[in-house]
Design a protein around this nucleic acid. Sequence first.
DNA 1: CTGAAAGCGCTAACAG
DNA 2: CTGTTAGCGCTTTCAG
Lengths: 335, 335
Amino acid sequence: MRSSQVTIKDIASQLGVSPSTVSRALKNHPDISKRTKKAVQELANILGYKPNEIALSLRTSKTNIIGLIIPEIEHHFFSSVINGIEAVVSLNGYNVMIFQSNEKYTREVINTQTLLSHRVDGVLCSVSKETQNYSHMENLIKNSIPVVLFDRIIDDLPVDKVIVDDYRGAYESTEHLIQKGCRNIIHLAANDKVSVGMQRQRGFMEAMKKHKLFHKDCIVYADTFQDAKKAMNSILARKVLPDGIFAVNDLAAIAAMQVVKKKGLKIPSDIAFVGFTNSISSQFTEPALSTVDQQGYKLGEQAAQLLLQRMSSKDMHYTPVTKILGTSLTRKIHH
Amino acid sequence: MRSSQVTIKDIASQLGVSPSTVSRALKNHPDISKRTKKAVQELANILGYKPNEIALSLRTSKTNIIGLIIPEIEHHFFSSVINGIEAVVSLNGYNVMIFQSNEKYTREVINTQTLLSHRVDGVLCSVSKETQNYSHMENLIKNSIPVVLFDRIIDDLPVDKVIVDDYRGAYESTEHLIQKGCRNIIHLAANDKVSVGMQRQRGFMEAMKKHKLFHKDCIVYADTFQDAKKAMNSILARKVLPDGIFAVNDLAAIAAMQVVKKKGLKIPSDIAFVGFTNSISSQFTEPALSTVDQQGYKLGEQAAQLLLQRMSSKDMHYTPVTKILGTSLTRKIHH
DNA sequence: CTGAAAGCGCTAACAG
DNA sequence: CTGTTAGCGCTTTCAG
C-alpha cells in the first residue's frame, strides 16, 4: 500500500490541468473558474491532499516553527511554561519544537545548531545551569533568528527577556516569615551561579538586613532533596535552632520539613517554612507548604508574545526589553 | 545586520568554485582535492555555515523528525516518556516534535494533520481520553508514516503498541494489600473508558474474586483529586469501613489519604493505601505512598525503538507487535 | 578532480 | 481563466 504522499502534481495530472492551477484553486484564487475550483478541491479531499510544509518552508524561508530550549521537561515549572507558549503561538499558526539541555552547556550549544539547521523562525530559551558563555545565542541572532530568554537568563546578552521577580518574591516571603514572628530564619540557597537563585538569595538578605536579623550563619547552600536533608540535619544540631526556613525551591523545603518532623518539631509553630515554585507536591505536604508561585503559564505566554512581536518586525536594531512578572505567595502560614 | 543564512552558494562564489564542489567537499567526498576541501571547510566554519535541513528534507523526503502526540505534557509520566523517547531517537539523528491533545479528540486530529503536513518520518502517540474513532491514525498509515501507540492505545488499530501491564500491576497491588491483611478493599476507579483504567479495574477485580473478597460496593468511580476527596468522605460514612484502598492513580490516593488522616484514622494500620503512577508527590506524603511504577522512561525507549525499527523496514504489510512492560510496586507497605 | 543540470513540491511572475 | 517558467538549497548523475 506504499502510497507516498499526494502532491499538487498528482491532482493536476488526474484533472488534466497544470500544477499552478491546482495551487491557485486550492487557495481560492479569484482567477480560477468555479468549476475548476470545485473539481480540484473535491479531488484534494478525496486523495487526502495536505500541503507539503517542507516545500513551502523552502520557498518562503519560513518554517512556522518556534524553537524552545529548556533545561528539563520533567520539571513541572517548565512544562507549564510550555503550555503558556503553545497557547499563544498556536493561535498564530506556529508549532513548537522542544529541546532539552539537561542542564548541560554543550547540549545547549548543539540544540542551537539543530535549531539553526531547521531554520526555525524564532527561539525561546531558558539557559542551563552551566551556561556562562553565550556565543551560541549570538550565533542565532547573527543568523537573524530572534531570541527571547525567559526565567534563566543571561544578563549581558542584549535580547528580550521575561523573568519572574525572584528578588521580590524572596523578599516578601522573608518578610512574611518575619511578620509571623520568626526571628532566626535560615535560607536554603542555590549552589550554582544562576541568576534566579542569586536573586532569591539577595531578596532574602535584603529583607533580613532591613529587619536587622541578618547574620553570617543564616545562609546554607542546599538546593536538592538530598543536600537539603543533610543541611537541615546539621542545622538542627546547632546550639540555637531556627524558627523559620526559606528555601530556594520546594524540593529543598519539603526535604527539610521531613527532617524537622522526624525530630518531633512542629510546623509551623516551632519552625515555619516557605518554599519557591508552587510545585504540585507542595500541596501534599502536611501542613501544605507555603510557597511562591512563579506563574509558569503566564511566563510562557509573555515570552511567546514578545517573540512573535519581535519576529514580525524587520528591525534588527531594536532595544531589548525585559519584562518582569510578579509572584504571589500561596497558602500563607497560619499559626 | 540582517545577514540571512549562509548557503552553499555563498561559499562557492566566494571561493570561485561550483556549488556541487562545495557540497562534495563538505562531506569529504574522495573526488575532491585536499586543497579545495580544506579551503571549503575553513570558509564554512568562518561563515558559520549550517546545512539547510529544509532543503535536505525536500530532496530526500526525510525530515529526521519524529512526531509525538501526548495528552498532557504537564503530566510527569508523559514527560518521563518523552525523555525515554529522546534518548533513543537522538542517538539515531532524529528530533522530536511534540504535540499535545489536551485530552481532546479534535485536537488530536488536527495534530495528526500538522504532522502529516510536516512530513514527519514516524509518529508516536498516546491517545486522548475522548478518542474512540481512529481514522486519523489510519490516515497517517495510508500516507506511509509508521505509527506506534503507547500506554493509551486503541485496541482495534493494527499498529505496533507498547503498553504497561496495567492488569498485572493492579492485580499484584491488590494481592499485596490482601497479604498485608486487608479484607475490605475499595478501588477508586477511572471514570472514563480508556483502556488503561479498565485494565487496572480488571486486575483489581480478578484479585479480589480470587480471594473471595469481591463485593458490589468495592468499586467507586473517582480519579481526580476533588472526586476522590468526595468519594472518600462518603466511603467513610459507610457502616463498614474499608481497611484498604487501591487507587487508579496517585492523585486520587493522596486525596483519599488526606481525608482519612483528617478523620484521625491511621495509615496503614487502619486503612492501607496503594496508588498507581509513582508520581513525584507520592514520596512526599506521610507515610510515603506505596505505588505502582509505570516506568515511563523505559516505555518511551521501547516505543521509540519499535518505531525506528518499523521506519527502517520498507515493508508495509507487517504484523503488528504489542510489547507489554512489567510494573513494579514501590515502597511496599510496612505495618 | 570539477562543473552543469535536473529535480524534490510549491508558488508567483509572466505570458498568453 | 490557465499554462509555463524559474527558483527556494541541496545532492547526484552525467559529462567533461
